[in-house]
Amino acid sequence: MGIRYYAYAFDPQNADLAVADPDGFISADPLADAWGFPHGAESASPTFEQAVPPRDMLYLDKAWSAFQSLTRAAEGHSARPSFRMFEGAVVQHAYGWERFVRALVPEEMPAIAADLADMDQDWLERHLCVPPQRDSDEELEYLTEFLGRARRFTASLVEDGRGMVYMIG
């Protein structure tokens, strides 16, 4: 199935708890939340409609790795503020991987949201390192969709004064 990205919002009064125990804010079945099928189902048809409201959950599928690459520090430059929400790596081992989980407190969200607001399809086109071909059009469309979701999610977190917990895994 691959390594995916899920983020869940938390209210400001829960910031200390989210930092201490980010797993407590991650759903037991985030893929079910993202794809719209019953939790724990062994056989079900997904609706591909996110079951959790978009203000409460962000699903970035596998686009997270491109955003991580696009926002990390480059030679002579610092990482973009939004790198904080993409940073992290799973730990590979013989039987799969250990996921990465982190909490970002409400005070971190304005800089992240503002940074994402500066990115759009034109920005993606300029920064993607994919040679012009049919696949690059599909990748651009894919990343543009998920960037829009990330922008809306972080903007709503700022508006509501909330933080987020994210999982790569």
Score class of each variant (00 low, 15 high):
33 D>L: 07
29 D>Y: 11
163 G>V: 08
50 Q>W: 08
138 E>I: 02
31 L>E: 12
101 V>Q: 02
17 L>D: 00
13 Q>I: 02
66 A>Q: 13
108 E>H: 14
72 R>K: 14
151 R>S: 15
110 P>S: 14
140 L>I: 09
135 D>G: 07
95 Y>L: 09
76 G>C: 12
158 V>T: 10
19 V>E: 00
124 L>D: 01
66 A>P: 03
82 S>M: 08
11 D>I: 07
44 A>M: 10
71 T>L: 15
100 F>L: 03
2 G>M: 06
42 E>F: 10
87 E>C: 07
133 Q>P: 01
62 K>C: 08
14 N>V: 00
144 T>V: 12
24 G>V: 02
95 Y>V: 03
44 A>N: 04
12 P>C: 11
89 A>R: 12
158 V>H: 00
83 F>Y: 15
126 R>I: 01
159 E>I: 09
66 A>V: 13
167 M>P: 00
109 M>T: 10
58 L>N: 00
24 G>H: 03
101 V>C: 11
137 D>H: 13
150 A>F: 08
14 N>T: 03
121 Q>G: 10
9 A>K: 05
69 S>V: 04
94 A>Y: 07
9 A>S: 10
82 S>A: 12
88 G>R: 04
50 Q>V: 12
132 P>Y: 04
72 R>V: 10
113 A>N: 06
113 A>F: 08
68 Q>W: 06
155 A>L: 05
166 Y>Q: 06
55 R>P: 05
159 E>W: 07
81 P>S: 06
122 D>G: 05
56 D>M: 14
24 G>E: 00
28 A>L: 14
51 A>E: 01
119 M>D: 01
75 E>K: 11
35 W>V: 05
45 S>I: 13
15 A>T: 15
157 L>A: 02
116 L>Q: 09
83 F>R: 14
21 D>Y: 02
160 D>W: 07
77 H>G: 05
48 F>D: 09
62 K>P: 01
53 P>M: 13
72 R>S: 04
54 P>D: 05
16 D>I: 10
56 D>W: 13
100 F>K: 02
90 V>L: 04
150 A>I: 15
169 G>D: 03
149 R>T: 06
136 S>F: 09
167 M>Q: 12
146 F>D: 08
34 A>C: 09
82 S>Y: 01
30 P>W: 01
155 A>C: 04
112 I>G: 00
105 V>H: 03
56 D>I: 11
10 F>I: 03
151 R>I: 15
145 E>D: 04
54 P>V: 08
144 T>D: 12
70 L>P: 00
145 E>I: 05
55 R>L: 13
138 E>R: 11
37 F>G: 01
27 S>Y: 00
77 H>I: 02
15 A>P: 12
89 A>I: 02
63 A>K: 04
139 E>F: 12
73 A>E: 05
100 F>S: 10
111 A>N: 14
30 P>M: 06
70 L>F: 06
42 E>S: 13
55 R>Q: 15
9 A>T: 02
168 I>R: 01
23 D>S: 07
82 S>W: 01
71 T>K: 04
27 S>T: 03
152 R>D: 14
45 S>K: 15
15 A>R: 15
124 L>Y: 03
30 P>N: 05
140 L>V: 07
96 G>M: 10
90 V>C: 07
52 V>S: 04
91 V>M: 04
138 E>H: 05
9 A>G: 02
26 I>S: 00
102 R>T: 11
14 N>H: 06
145 E>W: 09
61 D>W: 14
57 M>I: 08
